[in-house]
Write a protein that binds this DNA or RNA. Structure first.
Length: 560
RNA sequence: CGGGGCGUAGCGCAGUUUGGUAGCGCGCACGGUUCGGGACCGUGAAGUCGGAGGUUCAAAUCCUCUCGCCCCGACCA
């Protein structure tokens, strides 16, 4: 491809409304343009990257026996109504009507439609297993699109679905997908982790996420260096470091106007980890008191798992229900349901005295209060893994996920088969997603420097960039054209910067768009029959003979 | 949805406090000189000041409403 013929609108300055590095660089390097919040246009370079990612996805999916199909994006409401998600999902679903007032939605994902197809076509255990996938646009009316291409309202997803007669079959397809995903992300040059995740609204019981470490990510995972435990903090289990044993009598402490853990902790000169944080929430079954240690945060989702949906109590409600101002609440002497984090089980603590301006020292679980014990705190760096080693928490971009769905969708849509004994059973399903644009963004987040992007070879928009410095020098142009043809004939993807630009401009643009290898053709070197190969990542320059260029490029591509 | 910020030329911004004929840098077009890390000189084109309404002799500037974009949070199949 000739640079002069290609649309690569690079920008000298960073766009004002971009924050994430990948976002800034994608815009600056002319890979994408924004149409509206959460809607992006992929320009030629950006689209080439997605193409290469898609090629890897297809190869690896085919290698585990998945078959590519293509599903509509416009879905009739009835199917989503049958699984209940038409009502469960709120504003995030784009809904519309056709000219006859029939309800439709735009597909956020394709469990329903895939299952519908299976329900019509699969009859017998002999038809199973099946694995179908597509690389297709999804639409979600995100509450807050952000970080460029990382969270958008319209995006492409590789989604596959497995259909099995048995749990063992599902397990096998699940593992096959996990393996394929490892190969895919590895080939795309990403650092990534597989972590346990919360299946959420997908239903089913078992799922993992694939995460690319990056400060631009929206998720956090807890990792153990000791045993390899890794989980999304949404469900990560951890134990905080235990407190030193103290020998406090049960006694009141006057704590005038000291309400927060921090205030009381400073006032009494006792570390926050010796406090019980009492949080009143209102559930559908009434008020519940949640207790975590003073140095911890309450994990809303974990608590929801125990008490169902809930909201924090208002100040007036605290006063009404517990008879004391928020800030001086303690777990003692209440008749409402109490859920406590297990780290409060042993040792003595300080808690609110249920009396204005007083706290109590020496509070002991099971003696001074009773509670149901559940892990309801947010795991944080420094907490202990169940193996006894410390955990650390890392920010990540979710680039893929795998779910065991079970029969949630097949039961709802009557996708059944007859087994060997002629017994009708629901098909057992799995669902597996990957976001190609997130792979691209994660690759940039993980590989860049002050000059621009540094693409992994496998997904770079081109394999090499040819940079003839002086387009007015006949020999330079001649050599560039010759190398362009020679490299292209080796099926190497070449970008030839044939623009009438000064060397500096070409160098800057080349570094910005980040093609991994630059071949620089300069007048002076050429007189000695030499050209330079520059590695974008290391900036290392190597002079080689013109005749050796093709062989050298071939080696680089082969990873030698 | 709650909180905050911002909408002025293709891009990045100043001008708004204190109303008085819209500016800078980059980019773009043309001419010349340059030519291995975003050149220089000259000339030029380009703006409904997000939109609507209002106040005023006069509004980018003041008032009201509205739309859009970004960030934090909530939400996130």
């Amino acid at each position: 491809m000739r640079y002069s013929k290609m649309f690569i609108p690079t920008l000298r300055e960073a766009p004002a409304d971009a924050e994430a590095i990948s976002h800034i660089l994608m815009v600056r390097a002319g890979f994408v343009r924004q149409l509206a919040a959460g809607l992006y246009i992929f320009l030629p370079l950006g689209w080439r990257v997605l193409d290469r990612i898609d090629a890897i996805l297809k190869e690896e999916m085919e290698s585990i026996g998945a078959q590519e199909i293509s599903m509509p994006i416009l879905h009739p409401a009835e199917i989503w109504q049958q699984t209940g998600r038409w009502d469960v999902i709120g504003d995030e679903m784009f809904r519309l009507k056709d000219r006859t007032e029939r309800d439709f939605c735009l597909g956020m994902t394709h469990e329903e439609i895939m299952t519908w197809l299976a329900s019509r076509e699969i009859r017998s255990y002999r038809d199973l297993p099946q694995v179908w996938y597509q690389i297709q646009t999804k639409l979600r009316d995100e509450a807050r699109p952000k970080s460029g291409v990382l969270r958008t309202r319209e995006f492409i997803m590789k989604d596959s679905y497995s259909f099995d007669a048995t749990e063992e079959g599902l397990d096998k397809n699940y593992q096959l997908h996990a393996g394929a995903y490892h190969r895919i992300f590895g080939r795309c040059g990403l650092k990534f982790l597989q972590v346990e995740s919360d299946p959420g609204m997908m239903g089913g019981g078992y799922s993992h996420e694939f995460m690319a470490p990056s400060p631009a990510g929206e998720d956090e995972v807890a990792l153990c260096d000791g045993c390899g435990y890794s989980a999304n903090v949404e469900l990560a289990l951890s134990a905080p470091l235990p407190n030193e044993t103290v020998d406090w009598p049960y006694e009141e402490a006057h704590t005038p106007e000291k309400r927060t853990v921090k205030e009381v902790s400073n006032f009494l000169k006792v570390n926050p980890s010796y406090f019980i944080k009492s949080i009143l929430v209102i559930t559908e079954q009434g008020p519940v008191l949640a207790l975590v240690r003073g140095d911890q945060e309450l994990h809303e989702k974990k608590l929801s798992g125990v008490v169902g949906s809930h909201r924090p109590a208002q100040k007036t409600e605290v006063k009404e229900i517990l008879g004391v101002e928020a800030g001086f609440i303690g777990p003692m002497g209440h008749s409402i349901r109490v859920i406590a984090d297990p780290c409060l089980k042993d040792g003595l603590f300080i808690a609110g005295a249920n009396k204005q301006h007083y706290h109590i020292r020496g509070v002991k679980a099971d003696r001074d209060f009773n509670a149901e014990w559940h892990d309801i705190h947010i795991a944080k760096s420094g907490d202990m893994c169940s193996c006894g080693k410390p955990l650390h928490v890392e920010r990540v971009i979710e680039i893929g996920n795998i779910f065991k769905l079970g029969t949630k969708y097949s039961s709802a849509l009557n996708a059944v088969f007859l087994d060997e004994n002629g017994v009708e059973k629901p098909i057992i399903m799995g669902s597996y997603g990957i976001g190609p644009a997130r792979i691209a963004a994660a690759a940039i987040e993980q590989n860049n420097d002050k000059d621009g992007m540094i693409w992994p070879r496998s997904i770079a928009p081109f394999d090499v960039e040819l940079i003839p410095l002086n387009m007015n020098d006949e020999k330079t142009v001649e050599t560039a054209e010759m190398l362009y043809k020679a490299l292209s004939s080796e099926r190497i993807e070449v970008l030839l910067d044939d623009r009438e630009e000064r060397a500096g401009v070409k160098f800057k643009d080349a570094d910005l768009i980040g093609i991994p290898t630059q071949i620089i053709i300069g007048e002076k070197n050429l007189r000695e029959g030499l050209i330079e190969i520059k590695d974008r990542k290391t900036k290392e320059l190597t002079k080689i003979k013109v005749e050796e260029v093709v062989e050298k490029a071939r080696q680089l591509l082969a990873g030698l």
